[in-house]
Amino acid sequence: MMKPKTVDKIATAVIIGVAGLIVLVLAGLLGFIMVRGLGHLSFDFLTSPPQSIRAGGGIGPQLFNSLFLLVLTMIITVPLGIGAGIYMSEYAKANKFTDFIRLVVEVLSSFPSIVVGLFGLLMLVNYFGLGFSLMAGALALTIFNLPLMVRITEQGLKSVPREQKEAALALGLTKWKTITSIMLPIALPIIVSGTILAAGRVFGEAAALLFTAGMSSPRLDFTDWNPLSPVSPLNPFRPAETLAVHIWKINSEGLAPDATEIAAGASAVLVITVLLFNLVARWLGRFMYRKFTATK
């Protein structure tokens, strides 16, 4: 029988050791991506189109597709998600239907993204005839992201002090006016930082896009900004391979001799972007909080 003190020391050492190991692994992970990838990053790499067989291809169209898809997705997701979040937080009565919606949101948030992709293939690509397109991809990502957006909005609104809401109602404001002009501004820091984190998730998602936005890009003409032209980058009904899908594709079927370097470079771009989203979310959340509460 060991003394409790000895056991305590051993346990503490083990915990610190494990935590250290985790930190090492995570640091190694980030370091690996950065070291492998940063060397390959250049303006040319970020802007030029990929090569299928020769070396020296870039990720220009993929990067553009990822960003454009992100914007499209958020344009659809944010109003829908905030609307549904407001409903859940302010309008939903405590009854069976509300419980059912809560269950739906929970199920939807844990749906495997590949299944969302399959559904997108069936409904959006085939039934609605969108084909492999940015629009189909954006709608699939909306399905994938909506539950998160709802939860963020709900959290934000629940954080508003009850007295604020009551003060607005007591002035004779309608419920809707109270929500939009008193409660939402207070909830905004939480909603904005949550939305940016959700955007990071959209940026890195691949499985839901394989069968919706497609695995190829047409040759794009970056001088043609007419959204209706098939070679225009802005056309939302063209197929679009995103950065994350590109990484997957060159790893599983890449023929270019420098496929690994390209994958490393593209991974570094993804990770740096996610990092930026995180930092911006934190900073903006804090900044807005200070601005709205006018405290230091």
Partner: peptide, 12 residues
């Protein structure tokens, strides 16, 4: 009907 609460609650 105006209302005033226990803790001051000015709008932000």
């Amino acid at each position: 009907i105006g209302m005033v609460w226990q803790r001051p609650n000015p709008f932000h």
